[in-house]
Amino acid sequence: MTEFSFWDILRNLLLAARWTVVLSLVSFIGGGIVGAALLFLRIGGRRGMQFLSRGYIQLFQGTPLLMQLFLAFFGLGLFGIDVPAWLAACVALILWTAAFLAEIWRGCVESIAKGQWEASASLGMGYLQQMRYVILPQALKVAVPPTVGFSVQVVKGTALTSIIGFVELSKAGSIVTNATFQPFTVYGLVALIYFALCWPLSKSSQLLERKLNVAHRNH
């Protein structure tokens, strides 16, 4: 058996961490797009659509991400294709992220004063115009800190894809542990790498939040 040095372990983990980053980015961007669509249906669509998007959000927020991953993995398999783990991982994480982002953003849109809707309506704007030119520009500002904050949950959420066999940081941790029999060091390092990815996001979310609050108080 080959000997693993500390640096070998770290190098292997860092290489795998690339996939954690890629998966996080894909989930976050994809989830953002789906989430925006959900948001529009949730607050402005027809009754039936509102009901559906609300149900979607509650379903994805009310069940374990792990189950969603399993369902994506085996559900896509029902179509007769051999599903690669990365595909199931992307699908499940995008759908999961979308539910949370839609809900976060709904809060931001609802924090915009009712008068803004009324004033823009009284000027003859339709729903999409109101959203596009009046509500979203304001809501976006409020939405940045919690959105950045949620990106931390996405990065951490990618760890679960190791369970359906996607090789990212967590999976690499298990593989390296099995090869080295040094679980303490390996999982400690894995945790630190996640921390290095997540902490800057958490901190910037906090700082942005504080900046926004100060800006609001000055009015």
Partner: peptide, 23 residues
């Protein structure tokens, strides 16, 4: 608090179950 909030629960679990026995 910062360590826990910025690492996945799965890794915390593995660290406790697989890592701590080394100590």
């Amino acid at each position: 608090v910062e360590l826990i909030r910025n690492t996945p629960f799965l890794i915390q679990l593995f660290f406790i179950f697989f890592g701590l026995p080394s100590l």
